[in-house]
Amino acid sequence: MTGLSRGYWCECWTEDLTDATERPPTLHGSFDAYSAPQADRWVAVALRTITPALDPDACDEAWAWLHEGRADTRRALLRSEPCTVTISHGSTRITWTIRPALFLPLAHREAAELPSCAHDFKPHATVSSPR
């Protein structure tokens, strides 16, 4: 596993529960966390940010996770188990997922030479409009 880093892949999805067309959930954000505290903090910050806009039941769900569920989530992440945090606001279900992941570092481009084909491309010529 040379060069690989352990971490967590985090995503935030929403789903319209009243949509008759049964559209798939919509991805709204993703985050690569390099520790369990960083991963659950991403969810906690999002929940704290949106709680003022949530209906009372969803707000209660959010604060329940922040006060009680977060510790369970952190323990599960430390055991390399995937976790899900879900709240329902009206007809919308909001789900945060956190999964253990292995990250492969990208090559650093400053010291690397571009492949020879990179020099085959010419800048786009600007076309002027006829007068």
Results as ranks from 00 to 15, higher is better:
W42G: 02
L54P: 06
W63C: 12
A71Q: 07
A33C: 01
P56S: 08
A46Y: 11
W13P: 04
L77H: 00
L4W: 06
A44P: 06
E15N: 12
W9E: 02
G69Q: 09
W65L: 01
E61R: 10
A44M: 11
P37I: 01
L54D: 06
G7Q: 01
P37G: 08
E22L: 14
R75M: 02
R23Y: 09
T26V: 15
G29D: 01
P25L: 09
W63V: 10
S35L: 09
P52C: 11
L54H: 02
R70D: 04
T26C: 07
A20V: 12
E61A: 14
P52H: 11
L17N: 12
W65K: 01
A58V: 10
R74C: 07
D19T: 01
S35I: 08
D40H: 09
T51K: 06
D16G: 07
R74M: 10
D40W: 03
Q38T: 03
T49Y: 15
A44Q: 11
A62P: 00
V43S: 02
H28G: 02
T49W: 06
P56T: 08
T26Y: 01
D72N: 07
S80A: 12
L54I: 07
L66N: 08
R74Y: 09
S5V: 04
L17I: 12
W42T: 03
A62Q: 04
E81I: 00
L54T: 08
S35T: 13
P37C: 03
G7M: 03
L27G: 02
A36N: 10
Y34E: 05
E15P: 06
V45E: 10
E61T: 11
L77A: 06
A36S: 15
R48Y: 05
I50R: 07
D40R: 02
R79E: 07
T2L: 15
S30I: 04
D32E: 14
E22T: 00
D16C: 14
H28Q: 03
A33F: 02
T18R: 13
T21I: 12
A53E: 14
A20S: 11
E22S: 13
T14P: 05
A44N: 03
C59N: 13
A39F: 06
